[in-house]
Amino acid sequence: MMKRLQLFVAAFAILASSSLLASASDPSPLQDFCVAINDTKNGVFVNGKFCKDPKLANAEDFFYSGLNIPRNTSNPVGSTVTPVNVAQIPGLNTLGISIVRIDYAPYGGLNPPHTHPRATEILVVLEGTLYVGFVTSNTDNRLITKVLNPGDVFVFPVGLIHFQFNIGNTKAVAFAGLSSQNPGVITIANAVFGSNPPINPDVLTKAFQLDKNIVTYLQSKFWWDNN
Rank of each mutant, 00 (worst) to 15 (best):
F33P: 00
E121K: 14
L123H: 08
V203S: 00
S18M: 12
K52F: 01
R71M: 14
V132G: 02
V173G: 06
T187Y: 05
F33C: 03
F208A: 09
Y64C: 07
W224L: 06
A36F: 12
S79E: 03
D152C: 14
N93A: 07
V173W: 06
P183A: 07
I89N: 00
A10E: 10
I122H: 09
Y64Q: 10
P76W: 02
G133Y: 06
E121A: 11
I214P: 08
Y107N: 13
G48W: 07
T170N: 15
I122Y: 10
L110T: 04
Q181R: 01
V46Y: 10
K49N: 10
N72E: 15
S65P: 01
G168I: 03
I122F: 09
F33R: 04
Q88E: 09
G159C: 04
S180W: 00
G184L: 08
S98C: 06
N111K: 07
P112L: 01
N47P: 02
N72M: 10
K221M: 14
S17Y: 09
L15I: 09
P150H: 12
N190E: 12
G159K: 14
Q164D: 01
E121G: 05
A174I: 02
E121F: 11
N85H: 14
Q209D: 15
N47L: 05
S195M: 08
Q209E: 13
T115Q: 02
V46R: 13
H162N: 08
N213P: 03
A13I: 10
K41M: 13
N93M: 05
V81N: 04
P90K: 00
T120D: 06
L148D: 01
N58H: 12
A22W: 14
R142A: 12
F62T: 03
L126R: 14
N38G: 15
Q88A: 06
V135M: 11
I144P: 03
P198Y: 03
K55G: 03
L210V: 07
P113R: 07
T139G: 15
K55C: 02
F222E: 11
Q209H: 12
L130G: 01
N190W: 02
A36R: 11
P54T: 04
N75F: 06
A16H: 15
T73R: 03
P183D: 07
G109T: 04
S25Q: 09
P70H: 08
R118C: 01
N227K: 11
I97C: 02
T73L: 08
S19R: 11
D211Q: 12
P76G: 04
S17K: 10
V124I: 13
C34H: 03
I167L: 08
S28I: 08
K221C: 08
N58C: 07
Q181W: 00
K55W: 08
H114S: 06
T73F: 06
S137D: 15
K221P: 04
P117W: 07
L20C: 13
V100R: 08
S79G: 02
A16C: 15
N196T: 14
Y107Q: 14
A172R: 02
N58F: 10
P112H: 05
